[in-house]
Write a protein that binds this DNA or RNA. Sequence first.
DNA 1: CTATCATTTCCATACTTCTGGAATCATAAA
DNA 2: TTTATGATTCCAGAAGTATGGAAATGATAG
Lengths: 120, 120
Amino acid sequence: MERETAARLFESLASGARLDVFRLLVKQEPNGMNAGDIAASLGLPASTLSFHLKALTHAGLVTATPNSRFIRYRANVTVMFDLIGYLTDDCCGGQPGLCVDATATPCTTEDTLPSCKACA
Amino acid sequence: MERETAARLFESLASGARLDVFRLLVKQEPNGMNAGDIAASLGLPASTLSFHLKALTHAGLVTATPNSRFIRYRANVTVMFDLIGYLTDDCCGGQPGLCVDATATPCTTEDTLPSCKACA
DNA sequence: CTATCATTTCCATACTTCTGGAATCATAAA
DNA sequence: TTTATGATTCCAGAAGTATGGAAATGATAG
C-alpha cells in the first residue's frame, strides 16, 4: 500500500462522524445501507452525511452503488484489512515474542487476519 | 474505547510524515528511538518532527521517556491493537463466514490478534 | 561557569477541513 | 407533465492543521 493512500484512509477515519458511519457499515456487512437510513440512524443532516460519505468513498473505505433513487453504501473490509496490515507491517522488526499479547478471536478462521505479518 | 479517542488516534496517523514515524517506531519495538535518530532516518527538520511526535504522543500512539539529554520514543502497540479492535468491532453483525478472507500470519501465536471480535 | 548539544516552543503564513441551510440534480410514481 | 423524494452540490464563515527558521529550554561535559 502506498503511504499517501494509507494517510488518506486514516484521514477518512479521523472524525467522530465518519467513524460512526464506517463502524455502522462494518456492522451491516455485507448488506450495506442507504444514505438516508445512515443519516436517520446517526441523526446527521443530509448534507453533512454526504460530505463524510464522499470522504470515505474517495479514500476507498466505502463503496457506493446506485440503486434506482437510492445509493447503497458498504464498508470495504478488504481495504480495511490492508490498512491494518500496512500499519502493523514488520512489527518489532520481525522478531517473534516481542509483541503485545492482545487476546482476540479471528474473523472467520484461525489464520485469516492480517496483522504483524513479520512477527510470525 | 471512546469515539473521540479513536478519532484522535486516526488523525494522528493521517499524515505521511506521522505514518513514517509511527511505522518506523513499530519496526523498532520494543527498543524505540531518539528524536534525533528519527529525524535523521526520515530526513525531517527537528521542529517539524517535534510537531508530529507531539501529535502522536498526545494521541497516545507513541510514548516518550526522557533519558539524560535524549528522549526515547516508542510505539504503543497496545493502543494500536485496541484501535484495530474498535474499528473491526462487531464486524458483519457478528455473523461468521461473511467476512473477507484475508491471508496473514498472527504476531506471536495463532490467536493473539484483535480484529473482528464478533465474527468468530 | 561555559560551551555544547538534543529537543522543544514560538511564530507567522499558508492551507485544509467542518458545518448545515438552500439550491440543484435525478429517479420514479401519479 | 407534475409532484415527491433520495441524495448531492454549493456556499461562506469558523475552526483547525502544516511548515520550518529562530529563539528558548534543559542537561551534560570539561
